[in-house]
Design a protein around this nucleic acid. Structure first.
Lengths: 233, 233, 233, 233
DNA sequence: GATGAATGAGGCTTCATTCAT
DNA sequence: GATGAATGAAGCCTCATTCAT
């Protein structure tokens, strides 16, 4: 993986420029309207393509997904994707980054709310299922590929997120044990893995628009995780 | 596989013959005992190579694993693997088949024992962790790749196993609910997925020879699954 | 061939579309005439490459011809051929199919003309030498490889052609014997082989643009086949 | 094709030694008997293997024939063939040399007999069909592969033979034309090719032990070649 | 924005050949 | 004489990527 030499201003610039695009254009008042049609159209296409790519990555696995398959799904030729993106890998990166950004928006809000440990855990689980609902493909990709990816420089942000994630959960669990809200005899690290996996693996079978809303699934999961499946005697 | 005519036939034969070979070993005499060492050595090499391959597949993912990487780990050249196996895919198949065969040996014994639902569930979970202990790599591969593989004719045995698996678990859970051993308000299918994932995902982080024995991990998992992590109020 | 989804589809389509393309060219106007150049250019390239491939196959034998050799002759890299064709084998198939299609165009015309047996034989031989002139490489390939190829599903069309071919010749010879135009003491099958080989083997030494036109060679061959090389006594 | 460095005395020596072997062994009288059992057995095995190889080469083509296929037909493993022969190519060479040696034994006898041109031609054709009968596989191989092979140093003996062959036939034909035994209006080179091909291609369909003896087929071929297939008017 | 054609690296597989046993 | 295991070169094919149009 030699570092890129070609500027490739086109795609990369556009991506980052698009956010500011909103602000820029002729110093307008009502900032939301009029001015971004061009940039927004490009942005929309970009998002659309990333959605398609995510779907295919999730379905077939990143390595098994050829750029051609993505292009097919998007109704264009493989080469054309390179007008929009630097590389297959950069698509993957953007998909995962976008997902994690949104995930942490939600998590940070929850963690900042100052709930008790049980409420925090409930809120985190519920938030997680909401993310699965919104970013099913990205979550599935994350589950399957992140272990391999973290080793690459480009994807170290995954490791950062994982660390933050672990910290949030562990501290919540520890707070709960200390507060005698959670059982004192738990191996906290084991429990962490248990809850974490339990939640995220759901992305592998969850289909948005199914029978249960994310909140409902969260409720049931929480019921099992908190109270167990055995009848209380 | 009617196309090939390679020594694989020989090898495959040996593979199947090996069970008896081992059995006869203890029976001291010398009834044609001389020819086994060769067959057994071949068997051993085969198993060794499959073990290596499984390790690499689990580590890097099947698609991302090149035949050369496997060969490197085995200390030989890529082409040499083809003396022992038909293809990369056939290695994968044999790894998964061997694992599932052993898994079902254990499961079938449990299911045939006529335990009550809770004991059955406990025994299945314990058995599962034992399999994870013994076939960690194969389990990890199974987790990551089986969804893509089932579509291929060659791997339909995965689907068969999945069906059997689902049936065993669902019926155990249903028996438990009927017997009021498990909570009546559970969505059984959801619970099935919950328990299933809960157990198998462990393969992604479990390292044999670590602090906890499989039985101990099983006990803790069961404790969480059955009684929940919340303090009983 | 349901596996592939490559541009070959496009290419193949073009190939079939090309006949009409050529026809329309002379009709001066401009009814959507702009899109053809592309299609025709692709067609031309395809034909060019097949011609190159046929040359090399004929020269070195199909098996001994590496994809790289073809690419070298075409001034490109081996992998680039796969933009135009599915596989080495599919090139061979297209070469032979194209040849046989044209061959049967000619033969069918001859056979439908209602000539007497001697005239039919003369016309078939002449037509054959014309085909050798036009498709020298394909004929040579056909001679050398068809026996091995017919066994493959993909090349059963060769067997069909062979059957049709045999029927046409045998019936012509039989008609001739019945009409006392050909000697009654001939073993018809042996004669069939004799004439058939006599004609087609010429492809192995014939060089188009040489001293003799195909028609002239045909005349000499016919003279030998019909009247023998001995002086009449 | 780097020149061999390894002595490989074994196989090569044996082959050449075998002829003298007869003479050697304990200065015997009646030279034919007793003494060669060992050498002869080896010789026989060698011949047997070459026969097998020739069969497979003829059936599948030299390039498409793997050493393993030959070994399979011979009931041994691929590596074992290298005890008997230096290489796949040396097997091919020996097959062709043996065939050509015998062919020229026959031809030389015919040519030295001082027959007239027509009788010579008849004798050569008959002799050819006898060789086809005896060496069908070798003839078929020769037909299919010789063009590619002559370019290689090792197979220049093929070119020598071809030259001799052409000379023998051309001079016979020319003698015949001069003697007004053959038609004066023939293109002699064309006729040469015609007759040559006509005869040898028969190897591609001839099956020894069929309905017709080689002599009978020769008679029919000669009848066609000399007198033509048309009724004389 | 997109297409069509090509590149170049690399992947899986085959195969003639070697050699210790 | 033969086997079993391995080597190393080469073959076919795939795929991310580039670029002129």
């Amino acid at each position: 993986m030699p570092t890129k030499k070609k500027p490739q201003v086109t795609a990369a610039k556009k991506a980052r420029a698009s956010a500011e695009t909103n602000a820029r254009a002729s110093a307008g008042k009502k900032p939301a309207a009029e001015k971004k049609p061009a940039a927004t159209a490009a942005q929309a296409r970009r998002r659309e393509l990333l959605g398609t790519a995510a779907e295919v990555f999730a379905e077939q696995g990143y390595n098994a997904t050829t750029v051609r398959k993505i292009a097919d799904h998007a109704g264009m030729l493989a080469g054309s994707l390179y007008y929009h993106f630097d590389s297959k890998e950069s698509m993957l990166e953007e998909i995962l980054r976008t997902f994690l950004d949104e995930l942490w928006d939600g998590y940070d809000t929850v963690l900042a709310a100052g709930h008790g440990p049980r409420e925090t855990l409930e809120a985190l689980v519920t938030e997680s299922f909401r993310e699965i609902d919104r970013h099913r493909a990205a979550v599935a990709i994350y589950q399957k590929e992140s272990r391999q990816l973290v080793a690459q420089e480009r994807f170290t942000f995954l490791a950062d997120s994982q660390r933050k994630f672990e910290k949030a959960w562990l501290s919540t669990l520890e707070r709960g044990v200390a507060a005698r809200v959670f059982r004192y005899d738990l191996d906290v690290r084991l429990t962490y893995r248990f809850v974490r996996d339990t939640v995220w693996v759901a992305a592998s079978w969850y289909r948005p628009g199914g029978l249960h809303s994310p909140e409902e699934i969260a409720r049931q999961y929480l019921s099992m995780v908190l109270d167990g499946i055995a009848v209380r005697t």
